[in-house]
């Protein structure tokens, strides 16, 4: 609004295409709290929040701490008459450790613990240089790309809902005690929600580019030499 940014219809510089409908938009610097939506399909193109990078780093570390707690503390305990049983998060994954279900052990551990931890580190790796005002790490674009690709596969919140459904099924038959790991998972969901409200991937890509990522003017990755 305030100024006319430089854009080029030949090279695509300074333009944004909506990932949902391909409509072209001229890139503008938004202030924190502003939202840019696609004129054609209404998808949110950018929604920066002031101080979001620092918050995201803090929330990433929080989620790693909570996940460590969730892994090493008891998760659930049941008792009926004189019989009782308790399980940890590993116990839940190891429930599939028989016969042909074995690969599911790895898959379950990955989607509820492995990927959330990995994504937290990928995000910290991407954002720390940007917060310090330094050029991004060499593999930052790949790191943030994988952070986004792995998003749908990190299923901590789905696991918590699954736990609730399982508890509803057995709560009439046995006495259930919720362990610290259960509450750690509950807190993790809140941390993820907060993280999502601060996350604006357009802003992060722009920040990486502005902070000195090699793009069109310097080096073309995989571009034909023409």
């Amino acid at each position: 609004m305030q100024h006319q940014p430089i854009h080029d219809i030949e090279t695509g510089k300074g333009l944004i295409a909506c990932p949902r409908c391909d409509a072209l938009h001229v890139e503008e610097d938004l202030k924190g709290g502003e939202t840019a939506s696609c004129v054609r399909c209404g998808s949110v193109l950018a929604k920066p929040r002031g101080g979001a990078f620092t918050q995201l780093i803090a929330l990433s570390f929080t989620s790693v701490v909570l996940l460590m707690g969730a892994v090493f503390f008891p998760f659930l305990e049941i008792s009926r008459l004189s019989f009782g049983n308790q399980t940890s998060l590993f116990g839940v994954a190891l429930a599939f450790a028989e016969g042909m279900l074995l690969p599911l052990v790895v898959a379950v551990l990955l989607v509820i613990v492995g990927l959330p931890v990995l994504r937290a580190f990928l995000l910290v790796y991407t954002l720390v240089p940007l917060v310090k005002g330094r050029p991004p790490h060499r593999h930052a674009p790949a790191a943030f790309r994988w952070y986004e690709i792995l998003g749908p596969w990190s299923m901590a919140e789905i696991f918590l809902i699954g736990t609730s459904v399982a508890l509803v099924k057995i709560v009439g038959m046995v006495t259930v005690h919720l362990g610290p790991a259960f509450w750690a998972f509950g807190a993790l969901i809140l941390v993820n929600l907060a993280s999502r409200s601060f996350m604006c991937h357009t802003t992060i890509w722009d920040a990486m580019e502005d902070a000195g990522l090699p793009t069109d003017t310097h080096r073309m990755i995989g571009a034909p030499e023409a």
Partner: peptide
């Protein structure tokens, strides 16, 4: 417009380019 939009980061590139030079 004869351009290609990146589906991941939205950056626009000339047609014929194979890979987004911003996000890869």
């Amino acid at each position: 417009a004869g351009l290609m939009g990146c589906r991941r980061c939205g950056r626009v590139w000339p047609k014929g380019q194979r890979q987004c030079a911003r996000c890869g």
